[in-house]
């Protein structure tokens, strides 16, 4: 592995094993994968597949039992690197209520930059920037208690962004939100990935969200079982079922129509499916 490659790889797992305590089974068992800089990777798997564990391993909240994890070439297990690693990989967690430290939005966003010793004037600029990225500038002096779930989670993202990480990890950050809140978060995440070129690792069990990623990694009982573009992954419906995952809704309808003899292509989006059905029904016979 030459230097060039090390620099463009954001996260690399090499044969990583992890268990929570001596007697339990491996939560992660020999996992190897890497995430390129600027890539948007979705990590899916049913409850207990090890996907949240993976998130916590990346920025050293948990320590691998064996194997090697690097973030931009820096070994996470080396305590000296921990601060740098956490600066470059920020996590947004599931429950927005449990990751805020202050009763005022701007103070909460300031928490991260304060911790890494950013000068005062610059913290102000960073708050301004982070809140504008998530579209919450108007709430700078509000209390998080009065915000909706989606808004709170956007503040949590802003709090992580203010540290200016290169990697954004979302650990089921949309699981507790309503559809509107989920959409708000996905819009922010996609914008960050496309416009700010931020590396995104998204852990989710909403298949519709995983569809938006560049690449999907499927975990099952601590092992990577499938990896590839989401369009390809979700075409493999029988295999997904065996990992206790279900197809996105449109994929299911599409499969059933195919079973009923309709010659349509695999689809994952409503518009796409409608187009297929319409052209089949309207084609000159």
């Amino acid at each position: 592995m030459d230097m060039q490659e090390t620099e463009s790889v954001a996260v690399r797992f090499e044969n990583v094993k992890f268990k929570y305590d001596q007697n339990s089974r491996y939560a992660l068992n020999n996992v190897s994968f890497s995430v390129k800089e600027g890539e948007f990777v979705a990590l899916i798997g049913h409850n207990g597949s090890g996907k949240s564990t993976t998130a916590r391993l990346i920025n050293g909240l948990l320590e691998a039992t064996s194997g090697k994890i690097t973030v931009f070439g820096k070994d996470v297990s080396d305590k000296k690197n921990l601060f740098e690693v956490r600066k470059s990989a920020g996590i947004v967690f599931q429950n927005p209520d449990n990751q805020m430290v202050s009763s005022i939005v701007e103070d909460d966003v300031a928490f991260g930059p304060e911790n890494i010793g950013v000068p005062r004037e610059e913290i102000g600029e960073r708050i301004e920037w982070a809140l504008s990225v998530v579209g919450m500038t108007a709430y700078r002096n509000s209390s998080p208690a009065r915000l909706s779930g989606g808004q709170k989670q956007r503040i949590a993202i802003a709090g992580v962004l203010a540290i200016k990480p290169k990697i954004l990890i979302l650990d089921e950050s949309t699981a507790m939100l309503d559809p509107k809140g989920r959409k708000e978060i996905m819009d922010v995440v996609l914008r960050l990935n496309k416009e700010e070129k931020m590396t995104v690792i998204m852990i989710t069990h909403f298949m519709e969200e995983a569809l938006l990623a560049d690449r999907t990694v499927v975990l099952n009982r601590g092992k990577i079982v499938l990896e590839g573009e989401p369009q390809d992954i979700f075409k493999n419906s029988e295999l997904l079922e065996t990992y206790n995952l279900s197809l996105p809704g449109i994929g299911y309808i599409c499969k059933q129509l195919q079973k009923n003899g309709m010659a349509i292509r695999d689809c994952l989006y409503p518009e796409e499916l409608a187009e297929e059905i319409a052209s089949l029904l309207q084609e000159e016979s």
Partner: peptide, 20 residues
């Protein structure tokens, strides 16, 4: 009202736009 609709309704609507 800012509410979502079911997938089937989305497809149905897209089909109606295409004359089905």
């Amino acid at each position: 009202l800012g509410l979502d609709i079911p997938l089937t309704a989305k497809v149905q609507r897209a089909l109606a736009e295409r004359g089905v």
